[in-house]
Design a protein around this nucleic acid. Structure first.
Lengths: 339, 339
DNA sequence: GATGCCTACTGAACCGGATAAGCTGAGCAA
DNA sequence: TTGCTCAGCTTATCCGGTTCAGTAGGCATC
């Protein structure tokens, strides 16, 4: 089966290639009648313009890049990325953009990928995840002049456009909720400590605990994996001043924490309240279902994609705030025993 | 920052564009000394060939497509796809191929995507997931002559190349293991009934149960989601002849089933044994950890990618068998109470 | 020294679109 | 009738690679 080209359409319509190009792209230069005839023929023979030819002459790739830089082990478990990707994808495909994906080992490899994509003109722009403090990718992308939207912040995004949600406010809300229930010893199992949003949450946690006069407000760091989350929980629950509530930086660690607590003979929520970050179906899967700080992640991804397309179209690189995560109370939180 | 082109390299080296092309692609036609000089200059100025120009002239896209056709809701939860993608990606990026991803609503949309990709020459081939009985994608892809590898089977893949693993053998092994422990009433919570691998597993389950003389070997169908898996479990456990063991078609449903059992006051594994399919970290996250039929999914993805690249390179479309899932016994299986 | 052959290149065509520039005939005013 | 404008096309060029058909020069051969 031969792929139709613009020349095939032109021949069938009895016009030149140029006329077909004008007609298909909504440019002036052809009459309404001719345009309609050309469009009908194009549809009839199933013509879609070669992305390569279009990319070459129009100097646009029609694709957006996403490099994921987490070890494959944690990448698989966490529903976050798949949800983000599905949202990004929905927005892109609605505008006939493709999504090019690459899994990389570290930031240097990621920068190398950006450099290659730029040289190959393979993508028109990129989405950047997992922002770190002093992130080397920011100056690299700026130097390449490759349009980008950083998913993360606020702060640390340099000249690049960004999309962020107010994690500090959400964490504060969660702590205030637990304190209102009567908790005084609250711990937190954080994600990778060098990620910027971990730092933001850690600062917010320390801040609200100080304000509310909570003494043993400790954050222990993990790597988002269930193993590490479980281990951290075991350490916390074995300490002399055992916390009555734990906030986890993702859902996987929260589920692991729940298992550890139950394994240690503690009843959730009576002996221990649990709050998860990222309200995926995983939180409703376990018993009791987990109270979670959730947000619409596909919508977040769609928003990021929309923002990136705007930057690619030449709009100024702005910093946009997305909706803040919302607390959904479920069965894993209650007043501590004796209150 | 201007992107270097092949003409820039040629000018710096004092040769023609053609010579540079030969040198970079390892073709004969240039002397070893010239080749080396050209390569050095290319590296020095950071040249990487435009994917669009290469695609246009060499009639190869340098990309492989993957269309995912599951509702975004279940797509996010299940670690399977993310693990598969990371494996596919690792293999592709090692050979400088890009992965183009698209999430679609149904098979018709998926076929439309294939048709568009084909017309746009955007991908050199595609990976096809979630094979169904009488799958309309198979003849469509065959008609387009678009190189493809079907992940699934055996059977139902038409003329297309495929990669499959022996689910029937794995399921048989799981049932025999449960029977050896003393179980006689085994149920199964299957995935979407119109998926081919669900049918294969259902047939294998019925077969081995008949062979071993198990009476109440029932399969109930679900949609892979935790909600449905939990509901199915509740139904099974409420019946008069309650099963003493349940096999789930994925890990998410198994975890949900575990929660339901515990919620109903049953002890796992004493009152109920649970076997999960797809041994993701999720299975080790819960308490007790789940006995699972696992395999190396990233390796499966890598294998599929390798196979697809071979088909793209013109090798005949063969049906390759990957390793069978292995049973990993953990805390969720034991002899039934009273044995 | 004419011939053939091989190596190491050059030059140009080509892939399939986008687009600037040029052309043509119709319509209309002077 | 001439001149002018303008819609509605056509033609040609370009994007940045790959590849095929030459071609110049060196060397062996008869």
């Amino acid at each position: 089966m031969k792929r139709p080209t613009i020349a095939d359409v032109a021949r069938r319509a009895g016009v030149s290639k140029g006329a077909v190009s004008y007609a298909l792209n909504g440019q002036p230069g052809v009459s309404a009648a001719t345009r309609e005839r050309i469009l009908a023929i194009a549809t009839e023979i199933g013509f879609s313009p070669s992305s390569a030819a279009r990319a070459l002459s129009a100097a646009t790739a029609g694709a957006v890049g996403l490099a994921l830089c987490r070890p494959a082990r944690t990448l698989g478990v966490e529903p976050f990325f798949m949800a983000l990707i599905s949202g990004v994808e929905a927005e892109l495909s609605a505008r006939s953009y493709a999504l090019t994906l690459q899994v990389v080992a570290d930031h240097d490899a990621e920068i190398a990928v950006y450099r290659r994509w730029w040289g190959e003109r393979r993508v028109d722009g990129v989405l950047v995840c997992d922002l770190r403090t002093d992130d080397s990718r920011i100056p690299a992308l700026h130097q390449l002049q490759l349009p980008a939207v950083v998913i993360g912040g606020p702060g640390g995004t340099g000249e690049l456009a960004s999309l962020w949600s107010d994690d500090a406010a959400a964490l504060t809300e969660a702590v205030e909720y637990l304190v209102a229930l009567g908790h005084r010893r609250i711990a937190r199992v954080g994600g990778l400590p060098d990620l910027l949003h971990t730092e933001i949450r850690t600062d917010a946690f320390a801040g609200v605990c100080r304000r509310l006069g909570l003494a043993d407000a400790v954050t222990v760091f993990s790597d988002y994996s269930g193993e590490e989350g479980g281990r951290a929980t075991r350490r916390l629950l074995s300490s002399a001043t055992r916390p009555t509530a734990v906030i986890y930086d993702n859902d996987v660690m929260a589920v692991a924490g729940l298992s550890v607590a139950q394994e240690m003979g503690l009843t959730v929520p009576d002996d221990l309240s649990i709050v998860a970050w990222d309200d995926s179906p995983l939180c409703r899967l376990v018993h009791p279902p987990l109270t979670a700080l959730g947000r619409d992640i596909p919508a977040y991804g769609a928003h990021a994609a929309r923002h990136l397309l705007a930057v690619i179209a030449g709009q100024p690189a702005t910093r946009v705030q997305d909706e803040s995560p919302q607390l959904t109370p479920r069965g894993s939180t209650a007043p501590p025993r004796g209150k």
